[in-house]
Structure formats: C-alpha cells, structure tokens
Nucleic acid binder design. Structure first.
Length: 274
DNA sequence: CGGGCGGCCTGGAGGC
DNA sequence: TGCCTCCAGGCCGCCC
C-alpha cells in the first residue's frame, strides 16, 4: 500500500503521541510476516525503553528508542500501524502490539503479511542489508535531475520501473511514479537512455511536487491506508491518471490508458506524455 | 550486471 | 447467494 507520503503521514501522526512515551511490553501475536518477527529480540530491544525519535527512511518507519536501538516497521502492501486505547479488543490480523506507559497500545495489523518489524542498533542502520542499497531521499537536499541522470548513465530500459528502483531514489512506488511521469509529461515506456537533462530536471521536480502534495493531503487511501490515529488520506481524489483507465485526462481530456510494465499497472495520457 | 518476472499472502470487487 | 477469477500500494530472488 504505502509509499513515501503515507509513511511520512504516519510518522507525523504518531510523533506527538509516542515521543517521550515508553514501551512497557511487547506482545507478538503472530510472528508470520515477510520476515518472521524475532519476538525475543524485539522484546529485549524495546521493552522498558522510552521513544526518543520517530524518523523515516524510504518506506520504513524508524522508532528510535533510548538505549541505542531502533524498531523498524515496514507496512508492506496492507499494513496499518495505529494507536489503540487501553483495553481495545484484538482485531483480526494483529501481529504485534507495543503496550505503552500511557496505557494505549501501538499495534500492527497486516492481512497480507508483506510487512516487517525488526529491531536494530540505531548506529548501524545504514549498514544493515535492508538499508545499505537504498538510494537518495527525494525530499532531502541534493536530489535533483542530475541525481536521476547520473543513475541512468549506462542503463537502458523504460523510465517508469527506473523511477521505482529504490537503489536510485526511494519512496516512489507504483502510484507516485505513475503520477510523476504524468506531471512531467514523460511517456512511461521511454528509455532512460533517451531522456534529456531538461527532462530529468522536470522528472525530479515533478516527483518532489507530487510527494509533497500527497503528504499535505494525508496520503492516498485506496483501500487500507490510515495514519496512526486511523484517519484516511485524501490524495486519491487528486490522482491525475492512476487508476483512471478510460477516464478523460485532466489536462487534455484524451482517455487515460493502462499498460503493464514489469508486472505493474501503469496509467498515462497518450497525448500529454511523449 | 541490469532488467523482467514470478512469488509471497489475503481480501475485495466484479462477472456469471 | 455463491463461486471463480482477477487485481492490489512492496520487495526479493531467480532467470536470461
């Protein structure tokens, strides 16, 4: 489900509640996620620790704890991480619950089980195999057309899967790569070898605009995304082409087309995207 | 080595 | 109402 904007929205919604609170107890209800949850390790790392910071890297939420360890949460496709009041009943597909000093519990539900939860030493995060290969953060300084152009040098293949390649730039999944291409006026099948400097600049700035706009709208809720307090996002109404096969392009009214690239749906306007 | 594809899972939607 | 097929926001490993 969630791409960069959704995780950033989640981070911001949880931050005021979790900062300074303490994880009293960790309950692993069902360890079967993409990587089996190491219940004992998670407990050792997190139980009795105060939350020192909430960060995000790529599509991972990072919960830094006092004592030098970080709880890493990935929502996969269908994960939800929400705060529940004390005594709230277990919900279906609840995998992990962090019981807080405040009485609430931070719980992870994930029907499709593509998510993950692990605890790592905070200082070594970037060296961990989950993070070591990741590319630049698109909302941090230094990301620009030259970043993309440099990564594309010597490569071939269509630009859409390239934008979704997390070793190049992180956070762009199927929705936001699709919307970025529309905003930049670039055809999704165009080879990365045939994109000008100016187009790379446009792609970079378009991606930043799309991501920022989505964050201000609370992310995109197609089915299951919700922030830490269970609120849905609104960006789905602002999607220009994603999920809109056959509907008129918002710019020129030509019917939006759907194709499949690398096994994923791509939507584009055949007139606006060259 | 880079790119494409299947597989991991469950649930919801739509067709019949 | 029920059954079947298709599809879904991520990511990894295998294959060519």
């Amino acid at each position: 489900m969630p791409e960069l904007p959704e995780i950033e929205v989640l981070r911001r919604s949880l931050e005021p509640h979790l900062l300074g609170d303490r994880i009293e107890r960790v309950e692993v209800l069902n360890p079967a996620l993409r990587e089996p949850v190491d219940a004992a390790g998670l407990r050792r790392s997190a139980a009795g620790r105060e939350v020192a910071a909430l960060r995000r890297r790529s599509k991972y939420l990072l919960i830094d704890l006092a004592g030098g360890r970080t709880v890493v949460v990935h929502l996969g496709m269908s994960g939800r991480l929400t705060l529940a009041p004390a005594g709230a009943p277990l919900e279906p597909h609840e995998h992990v619950a962090f019981h807080l000093r405040s009485g609430r519990r931070l719980r992870l539900r994930d029907p499709r089980r593509f998510g993950m939860v692990l605890a790592l030493p905070t200082a070594d995060l970037s060296a961990d195999p989950h993070f070591a290969h990741l590319g630049v953060e698109p909302l941090e300084p230094g990301y620009a057309g030259a970043t993309l152009a440099g990564a594309a040098r010597g490569r071939r293949g269509p630009v859409k899967p390239f934008l979704m390649d997390a070793t190049v730039v992180v956070g762009l999944g199927n929705i936001y790569a699709t919307e970025t291409l529309f905003r930049a006026g670039v055809h999704p099948t165009r080879s990365v070898a045939r994109i000008s400097e100016r187009r790379w600049e446009r792609l970079a700035s378009s991606s930043i605009e799309v991501l920022r706009h989505a964050i201000t709208q609370g992310g995109t809720t197609l089915n299951d995304f919700a922030d830490g307090e269970g609120r849905s996002g609104y960006f789905q109404v602002a999607l220009a082409v994603y999920g809109r096969e056959g509907e008129p392009c918002p710019a020129c009214a030509a019917p939006v087309r759907r194709i499949v690239q690398a096994g994923r749906s791509t939507f584009y306007c055949p007139r606006c995207q060259k």
